[in-house]
């Protein structure tokens, strides 16, 4: 079960970053919780968190929203979702997640984030396996962005250990 206190840092971070970088106001829609796989829209930015909070955060949006977003950030009109646009949208995800982890660390949860991975393609299934996802739909003036949070608090003492090693060692004769 995901801890709801991990939710607000992300919602705040998105609102702040969108306001600073894009000048767009965000309004939050109704939260939903899913355990099944996520079906992608056009563009998904995936960023992992490790540390006292672990899991994955995904930002899903349409190509149109992605293009509007980078056009605003970089101050030039994008008509094609090229590598520069991909990089811009990924960086946006990186900045939002980075801001959110600063807020999380103020609340006592230290974590680090991975480099962003960008997935493009409609109708692909992304499963976070045993992590349930909270979906936060956000409406902005550049379009809709869905934030998917599949996070949980790491068990104590586990945040920096590679616990998986033992499972293999036990099997060797």
């Amino acid at each position: 079960m995901m801890n709801v206190k991990f939710l607000n840092p992300f919602v705040e971070a998105v609102a702040e970053v969108m306001e600073k970088e894009v000048g767009a106001k965000t309004t939050r829609g109704n939260l939903t919780m899913q355990t099944s796989a996520m079906t992608t829209t056009d563009v998904t930015v995936l960023i992992n968190l490790v540390g006292q909070v672990q899991g994955v955060v995904m930002y899903g949006m349409s190509f149109e929203t992605g293009l509007n977003l980078v056009s605003q950030i970089m101050g030039q009109k994008f008509t094609e979702f090229d590598t520069l646009a991909q990089s811009g949208v990924s960086e946006m995800g990186n900045v939002i997640t980075g801001q959110a982890t600063i807020k999380l660390s103020r609340a006592g949860y230290q974590s680090n984030i991975s480099p962003p991975t960008m997935i493009m393609g409609n109708g692909i299934k992304i499963s976070t396996l045993d992590f349930s996802r909270i979906i936060v739909p956000l409406k902005t003036s550049v379009g809709e962005i869905d934030v998917h949070l599949a996070l949980r608090e790491s068990p104590p003492g586990m945040n920096n250990t590679n616990f998986v090693d033992l499972t293999v060692k036990n099997k060797t004769p």
Binding site: L46, L49, Q54, G55, V56, I119, I124, F131, N159
Partner: peptide, 8 residues
């Protein structure tokens, strides 16, 4: 540190 797996 490694992150939990995500499946596509």
């Amino acid at each position: 540190t490694i992150s939990p797996p995500t499946m596509i």
